[in-house]
């Protein structure tokens, strides 16, 4: 009886928090849905009434839609590949006993604490500037013409900047995973005749698979929403207009709230499809 009582009491006491969270989530979602069915142009006449699915059709039929999906996937995919591979490599390096380990680890984590806007500005002005950037000087020093990074190689540049920010996260999670590997397993494999590459493939990588899935899952959620890096560098030009950025442009630059909201709903659907996929993979990996 006591448990029944305390259970209902617990429900009552949790209710405010749950209601607050639900409201927090539901209000913007319902408003987005509401606006997505309206022709709403704040500077050009305001609310012009219901338009059914017009906004949805216009959003996907616009010539900017598919390229934006491609750019989004390219950035998410590119950053994931780079951070997971380099992160694994760095984690294994950092796991080795070495002099100044503490300081090196802090240095490796440091980029994570730099705000996205700041890091994008630093990269844009200090490294990628075609006249004064460090890369330009490097290129000139070997007699090559400096690359205009943000226009000639815009997508790779953004992937580079975002990877730099997320590499510490991947490294940190993978490092803790590597540290939990029983060294006797590696020694057993060594005695069993496994050379280094085999030990990596058959022992270390399977041990890391869980951590890698977690890194992919968490990063994907955040990478789908990358915004500041694009805003500060290319402003969405040169093929770097992601879905997020496209929605931003529709709402704030074109002042078309209805169209942007429809894009927002697409973004929610896309995120959910990806989350579903990832959850399946994670579920499989976490069961094992």
């Amino acid at each position: 009886m006591a448990t029944q009582h305390s259970r209902s009491a617990a429900r009552v006491m949790m209710a405010p928090a749950v209601i607050l969270l639900l409201g927090w989530m539901l209000v913007p979602l319902v408003m987005t849905l509401y606006f997505s069915f309206k022709q709403y142009l704040p500077l050009r006449g305001g609310d012009l009434g219901w338009v059914g699915f017009d906004n949805y059709v216009r959003f996907v039929t616009s010539s900017a839609f598919w390229p934006s999906i491609q750019a989004t996937l390219a950035i998410v995919g590119g950053v994931l590949v780079i951070t997971v591979i380099l992160g694994t490599f760095l984690a294994m390096l950092l796991d080795q006993p070495m002099w100044g380990q503490g300081i090196v680890r802090i240095l490796v984590i440091a980029p994570f604490f730099v705000m996205p806007t700041v890091s994008a500005l630093v990269w844009k002005n200090l490294f990628m500037d075609p006249v004064n950037g460090l890369f330009a000087h490097l290129w000139k020093s070997v007699g090559a013409t400096p690359i205009e990074w943000l226009s000639q190689a815009s997508l790779p540049s953004i992937i580079l900047i975002v990877s730099w920010q997320w590499l510490p996260f991947a490294t940190l999670i993978l490092l803790t995973a590597i540290q939990s590997l029983d060294s006797e397993q590696l020694e057993a494999a060594e005695m069993d005749g496994a050379r280094w590459p085999s030990r990596f493939i058959y022992i270390i990588l399977p041990h890391l698979s869980r951590a890698i899935t977690v890194v992919i899952l968490i990063q994907t959620i955040f990478l789908l929403a990358v915004f500041a890096e694009i805003f500060v560098t290319t402003q969405g030009s040169f093929g770097t207009r992601t879905l997020t950025y496209l929605i931003f442009q529709r709402v704030l630059e074109s002042q078309n709230v209805g169209l942007g909201s429809a894009g927002g709903v697409y973004a929610i659907i896309l995120a959910n499809i990806i989350a579903l996929f990832l959850m399946r993979i994670v579920g499989k990996n976490l069961d094992a």
Binding site: D182, E184, A188, A189, P206
Partner: peptide
């Protein structure tokens, strides 16, 4: 001592 079996 810990057997060091490969868990996966």
């Amino acid at each position: 001592q810990s057997y060091a079996l490969y868990p996966h």
